[in-house]
Simulated scan of single mutants.
Amino acid sequence: MYRIYDGAKIINRANLRIGNYSQIDDFVFFNCGQESIIGSFVHISSFTSIIGGGKFYMDHFSGLSAGCRIITGSDDFMGGGLTNPTVPSKYTNVKQSSIKIGKHAIIGTNVTILPGVTIGEGAAVGAGAIVRKNLEPWTIYTGIDCKPLKARSSTKILQLEKELLEDMKLTMTSIFEL
């Protein structure tokens, strides 16, 4: 019971697992690469692209705002191979990685997340940031260079999650524990 709008473009859909009550909006481009797992109550907004051919994971209650760029792999720019997707893979040196977005993490508009990054549970990233390294749980990050601003409270969020799951008679295990 999830929704993928007709205007979303999903490549390698066989590699995608998506939980209940999640939504992928129109105009999302999603190359599911090696493996893509999206938990329940996840939202991926319009004009987001998830590319690179690597692994992608979003845990429950997380979200990507409009225009995010999630990159799970990259060409070798140091001269280790030919570059661009039109070249057969035996002549390239693409480095595929994974992106992990923790439960309750929220990613602001036009954020770029580079390969190999883990976004901690409950982290919030302000609009326009470039995420190059792992982010700590329950911390708010801002600016192009994605610096920590302050702690984010988990108390009310986790209480509301508990109430919602009780009301809906649901139980959930983190996608990272499956």
Rank of each mutant, 00 (worst) to 15 (best):
T139N: 07
D75Q: 03
Q23K: 12
W138F: 08
T92G: 13
L170S: 01
Q159M: 11
R13T: 01
E166N: 11
S98T: 01
K9M: 11
S89K: 14
I44W: 01
A124V: 15
R152E: 01
D145I: 07
I157S: 12
R69I: 10
K100W: 04
D75V: 07
Y2L: 07
C146P: 06
W138H: 00
I113Q: 11
K156F: 08
I37G: 01
T48S: 14
N84I: 03
H60C: 05
R3W: 01
I107H: 06
D75R: 14
G19T: 01
S65M: 03
A151T: 14
I157G: 05
F77W: 12
H60M: 02
I107G: 02
Y141N: 06
F30S: 02
V117M: 13
I50K: 07
I106E: 11
A66Y: 13
S49A: 06
F29R: 09
M1F: 10
G33Q: 11
N31I: 02
S153A: 13
N93G: 15
K156Y: 12
G33L: 09
D76P: 10
Q34F: 08
A124Y: 15
Q23H: 14
Q34W: 08
M78R: 13
T72A: 08
M58E: 07
I119N: 06
Y141W: 10
L165V: 05
K95P: 09
N110S: 15
S174Y: 03
P115R: 13
I44K: 02
E177P: 09
K147Y: 14
I140H: 08
L165F: 10
R69T: 06
M1D: 15
P115K: 04
L135S: 02
I37K: 05
V111N: 02
G122T: 07
N93K: 11
E136R: 13
Q23P: 00
L114D: 04
D76E: 08
C32E: 08
D59C: 05
F56Q: 02
G126D: 12
S62R: 00
Q23M: 06
S46Q: 15
G52L: 14
S89E: 15
I51W: 11
L178Q: 15
V125T: 05
M1N: 14
L158R: 13
F56V: 12
I4Y: 01
S153V: 08
I101R: 00
K133N: 11
Q159C: 10
T48D: 09
T83F: 04
F61M: 07
S97L: 04
S98V: 03
L135E: 06
L114W: 08
C68V: 03
S46R: 12
S174P: 13
K95C: 13
S22H: 00
K90Y: 13
G120C: 04
S36L: 05
T92I: 04
S65G: 11
I106R: 14
I51T: 13
A14Y: 10
G122W: 00
I71A: 02
I175F: 07
D6F: 01
D25Y: 09
S40R: 04
G54Y: 04
L64I: 09
G81M: 10
I37N: 03
E161W: 07
S154N: 15
Q23I: 12
G53E: 03
W138S: 09
K147T: 12
G143C: 01
N15K: 12
S46P: 02
P85E: 15
I113V: 11
